[in-house]
Simulated scan of single mutants.
Amino acid sequence: MEAVIKNKGRKQARVQMNWKDRLFDISIYGVAIMMIIMIVYPLWFIIIASFSNPGDVSSGNVWFWPKEWKLAGYIELLKNESIWRGYLNTIIYTLVGTVIGLCVNIPAGFALSRPNLPGKNWITTFYIIPMFFTGGLIPTYLVVKNFGMLDTFWVLVLPFSVSAFNIIIARTFFKNSIPEELWEAAQMDGCGTIRYFFTMVLPLSKAILAVIGLWTAVGIWNSWFDAMIYISNENLQPLQLILRRLLIMNESLFEMASGDLASELRQLSDMMKYAAIVVSTLPIMMLYPFLQKYFNQGIMIGSVKE
């Protein structure tokens, strides 16, 4: 009889625990869904607003789908030849700058992860200090000018290719994710440091390569301030700077106009703003689904463990 009562009590406790677990799971999924909506909906709204009548958008009639499809913003934006030239420049800057960034930061992170590196603490301090203190815009401009890189292709990919943050992330990843026993086994087979890095370490570091590569690519793709400071040649300007100039130009035309013309220019300017956001962000956002699987491994292992 006592055994039956104990079994019944265990079943009731199990049912109660299962109910609590289900409630906890429902709460977690509910919060996750709300966060996804909060992140995804603004992006979706920008897309549908770029195809909508600006009057419907400003009056709050557009929520999930355009009331009236319009392509005037995209047509006006893409008929400008400088947009296509800026697109090509930005793609080249991003590809070349990402490759250079990986070639600079990944080996530096690996070198700092070696326990027998002479002066490792001093070198690490040398990298960390610029993360908090910089020389300022004017000294940087003078350095770039003295190297003869003003109004050149390389000014957007070489001077700022070193990232102390990426180096620290890569160092921590190598330190915590690549076992030291692998290096000892490689030494027994007569493998040197360089060969070990290229043949054994890099194939095991796809996660951190993807993460740092994407961070570098996004930074270069979205950069416009450096181009505004160092590039005056319109043939070398990236997409973001050209879009900024076009939007400012449209705002100036709108301020000078009056009456019905001002209203039309205002609507066209609003549509071009939304279209410019989509045109400038959609290509780089398409990379995220292909690299998302590397993010947890690359960031969590590379930065949390220490």
Rank of each mutant, 00 (worst) to 15 (best):
E2Y: 04
A3Q: 14
I5N: 13
K6R: 15
G9C: 00
R10N: 10
Q12I: 15
Q16L: 15
M17K: 15
W19R: 03
D25H: 15
I26E: 09
I28D: 09
Y29V: 07
M34V: 15
V40S: 04
W44H: 13
F45W: 06
S52H: 04
N53W: 05
P54W: 01
V57P: 07
S58T: 10
N61L: 09
K70S: 06
I75N: 10
I75T: 14
K79L: 10
Y87S: 08
Y87L: 15
I91S: 08
Y93C: 04
T94W: 09
V99A: 15
G101V: 01
N105G: 05
F110S: 02
A111S: 11
S113L: 06
K120N: 12
T125G: 12
F126D: 05
P130M: 04
F133A: 03
F133W: 13
I138Y: 08
Y141L: 06
V144K: 07
K145I: 08
G148H: 06
L150R: 06
F153A: 05
W154C: 00
V162R: 00
F165A: 08
N166T: 01
I168G: 01
I169H: 07
N176D: 03
E181W: 12
L182I: 12
A185M: 04
Q187H: 08
G190E: 00
R195L: 10
F197P: 00
T199D: 12
L209V: 06
L214G: 02
F225Q: 10
A227I: 02
I231A: 01
S232Y: 14
S232Q: 15
N233T: 12
N233A: 15
E234I: 15
N235V: 13
N235C: 07
L241Y: 11
L246Q: 12
L247Y: 04
F254G: 04
F254L: 14
S258E: 15
E264C: 09
K273V: 05
K273M: 13
A276H: 01
V279G: 05
S280G: 13
F290K: 03
Q292M: 03
I299P: 05
E306R: 08
E306D: 12
